[in-house]
Design a binder for these strands. Structure first.
Lengths: 293, 293
DNA sequence: GTGTTAATGTTATTTAATTACAAGATAACA
DNA sequence: TGTTATCTTGTAATTAAATAACATTAACAC
């Protein structure tokens, strides 16, 4: 856990004066990093040694060490604020801003992804007879991607983006199956309908969606899609995509580990199946070099 | 530019004693960060003030400031090394490791993404009559995702994952169109064939692929897919996915900016078209609360 | 060889951070 | 309600760290 989170979490268990220091740092961590104890102390309205004591309370050995921890934490977080693109931006600026946003999104995921949900999802999927994935609209590509990643592990997996196919699949599923629904907002009527059908089939229902949504309420296991994070400006509807993809990545990786050697062998087999569709690297290079002069 | 790069670059222009300090820091930056001037000085075999002077030479006002800079630089770099998952990992460890890897991948992208290629791609796509996207296998989901993102901007866009459809589209394309090919390795024979067909149609060919591949050689504009980064261990075939997705994000964002108010209006229109498919947030909450007692 | 400049080390000073201690506040219990 | 114990905070003192000032040495030019 990074130092800013730690401070935030411990904030209420600190003494009054220490809490003042915590607030001062949380209010302007970037600035706090470049202050001396004396300055930070006076800003927080406490005595110098309080700052030292505060450092100890948040498990740093000294104030300079706290500064280093802050720097580490801020290196990731730096971009959370006001990284929305604007009209005059050059390509270079857009690149920087979007990469920053996406890194920040991952940082958010680090502190908000629930380990237990992941564990539960992996356990359910690991023992499933088949995994059925559903996603519409923007989530259709995600569903397809998840299917591509999971079937490689040797678990029968299908992905649907068609509402009628989803209905049939949901109705026909058994209690031995896992039904995986991707929906960023969790408010699409069509998807909620599918979830209700799936529940009637006694299937284990896992949703990657907004945890406050009606869809989430129907699920056995819910993992946050980061919808609450999404910037509402029309330019930036991308953050959740990265979050969901990383969640798939995490689940697939954990699943592969849970499956053990079997999955490993399966992955190798699937990988090698593509060998004959590829052009060889060395042969190609030689040809193109020789053909020029 | 981060402080480690700076030190590396300036290393040879420093005086003999300062160079010793530089070497000591570069050899073990993580440790150097936790040392006092005196210790670093003795390790480097120089006097204490040399360390202070060294800090000035690399544009830091003090040694503590250098430490902060080092912390910032290392925060990103830290995760590159040995973050591959292994058998005993808990869910929590997998989460941390995969997030670290993905953040590191974005960091890599920041320094390796070519601004000019992005600019060129945006310019070409901005003026295109239509955009045709092709991707097979793992790239099929990516292609679909890109289509979903680009058509919202008001540019006619289609995505294909079927080889025969791609052939027809490539053969039928005109010089006013953009043909976008996603292929991580750039060695899939089927995709190379499509690229050759597309070139014959005089279309502007943009590839997101390994820049050293045969596919890249055929393209008018190439953007790296990060294939060279991909961990060859079978557990981790995910990094490129994040990179490519972020590239799409960047291009779409830049494109939206380039289109100006027209794109903005279009985005709003498309967004509102979904309104009637969604369940209202407030209404739902009330219902579910009241229905319980 | 001597003067000049740049580079480094030694010593001194300043600054910053923490320890030690004392005073005050707060809570617990008689 | 008073008394004691504990916990919190500030003041003063100490220590440690970093830099400035100065001295020395080394390198080079003339």
């Amino acid at each position: 856990m990074n130092i800013l989170h730690l401070i935030k979490v411990q904030r209420d268990q600190l003494s009054k004066a220490e809490a003042k220091v915590a607030d001062e740092i949380l209010a302007a961590p970037e600035e706090a990093m470049n202050m001396a104890t004396a300055e930070l102390a006076s800003r927080a309205g406490v005595s110098d040694p309080m700052v030292s004591r505060f450092c100890r309370s948040v498990s740093c050995n000294s104030f300079p060490e706290l500064k280093v921890q802050l720097a580490k934490a801020l290196a990731h977080r730096a971009s959370f604020i006001s990284e929305a693109v604007s009209k005059g931006d050059t390509a270079h600026t857009v690149i920087e801003k979007r990469i920053n946003s996406n890194q920040a999104a991952l940082e958010y995921l680090r502190s908000h992804l629930d380990t237990q949900s992941i564990d539960a999802a992996v356990k359910a999927m690991s023992g499933a007879r088949q995994i059925i994935i559903a996603g519409m609209g923007g989530a259709a590509a995600i569903a397809k991607d998840a299917q591509h990643k999971l079937f490689r592990l040797g678990i029968p997996t299908v992905a649907y983006d068609d509402h009628l196919m989803m209905r049939m699949a949901a109705a026909g599923a058994s209690s031995k199956d896992c039904f995986l629904i991707f929906s960023v907002t969790g408010r699409t009527n069509a998807m909620i309908e599918i979830a209700e059908l799936a529940k009637q089939s006694q299937v284990t229902l896992i949703t990657i969606t907004n945890p406050d949504s009606p869809l989430a309420k129907l699920a056995d296991i819910t993992i946050t899609s980061g919808d609450e994070l999404e910037d509402t400006t029309i330019y930036v509807p991308m953050t959740t995509r990265i979050i969901i993809l990383t969640i798939i990545d995490i689940i697939a990786t954990a699943l592969a580990l849970a499956q053990g050697p079997a999955a490993e062998a399966q992955l190798t087999k699937v990988k090698h199946s593509l060998d004959t569709t590829k052009r060889k690297a060395s042969a190609e290079r030689k040809t193109s070099k020789n053909s020029k002069p």
